[in-house]
Design a protein around this nucleic acid. Structure first.
Lengths: 152, 152
DNA sequence: GCTCTGTTATAGCCTTTATAGAACAGAGCG
DNA sequence: CGCTCTGTTCTATAAAGGCTATAACAGAGC
């Protein structure tokens, strides 16, 4: 996994980075305690400015997904097995879910078709779709492109 | 239904208008053929500029949800019973669904909890939650606030 | 003729996005 | 110690997006 970005997309780059990391956590490619590349390193790999990566990491930190220290860098704070979400998150998330599902229904998708899509997405997270779901020893997992590990 | 906006939200106003109309179509408050208020009228009711409403309507037109003529104004083009969505829509929609569901899973929500939320949202559309689901005779339905009908 | 409609154009102001350069302190390592 | 990498903070810039504002035009209904 290389954290593919679409520079032609209308979605901001920092938002795309944030979304890809969230999906990596949901699919188990990143687990609680996994360390992410440094902002400068990931910026070099993606060919973008390190401030943009910093913005994505800071957004994930404010969402409670990352824990960032000066010594250990960015560590994954939560994953699918970290316990139920906070009530405040669920309420805000369901309003966005309502808007997204309304879009499908308004376009003519029936309830069974929508639920099938939801089930299909959820199973794509839990089942080993593409890669192995990140053994615990892997650090800097699958994000930092081709160079080896931390000592550089 | 008054199309409530949140001017303090970080979401753009035209996006909020678009979302509320999509949800109104999904819940049956607006059906195929329903006419929406004019851009100028809705702008006055909401206390915003009519260009902002125009942007929301134009976005809905490009998404295939509205049909806009100079004579009849903005009419609902699709609703839940207008047939299945185009394949191109489904593919793009599922990528957004994937990001949204990944967020819930990463925060610790289990698959059953996520699917329950989806089911709950879908039934809130089909079941008569608050108002009556728009009898066919109503035009300018529930959107233009307190004044009566088209003749003004 | 009058009014309302959608449509288009221009302009200004503010925020956001992404870039860039610079500097600082803490930590690890030879 | 010097060197390097780290996160953090600051300032600055150019580009794009969001919202408002004013104006003008043509089609439709009364």
């Amino acid at each position: 996994m290389i954290l593919s970005l679409d520079l032609d997309s209308d979605a901001p780059i920092y938002q795309q980075i944030r979304d890809r990391i969230v999906e990596a956590i949901a699919s188990g490619h990143l687990v609680e305690g996994s360390s992410l590349p440094s902002t400068r390193q990931l910026a070099v790999d993606l060919g973008i400015n390190f401030h943009t990566v910093n913005k994505a990491y800071d957004l994930l930190r404010r969402e409670g997904m990352l824990r960032i220290n000066r010594k250990s860098g960015a560590l994954v704070q939560r994953d699918a097995r970290s316990g139920p979400p906070e009530p405040g998150f669920t309420a805000e998330w369901e309003t966005r879910l309502r808007t997204l599902l309304a879009e499908a229904v308004a376009h003519g998708a029936g309830d069974p078709a929508v639920l099938d899509s939801c089930r299909s997405v959820l199973t794509s997270f839990t089942s080993p779709a593409s890669d192995s779901p990140a053994p615990a020893s892997r650090k800097r997992a699958e994000l930092g492109a081709e160079q080896g590990d931390s000592t550089r």
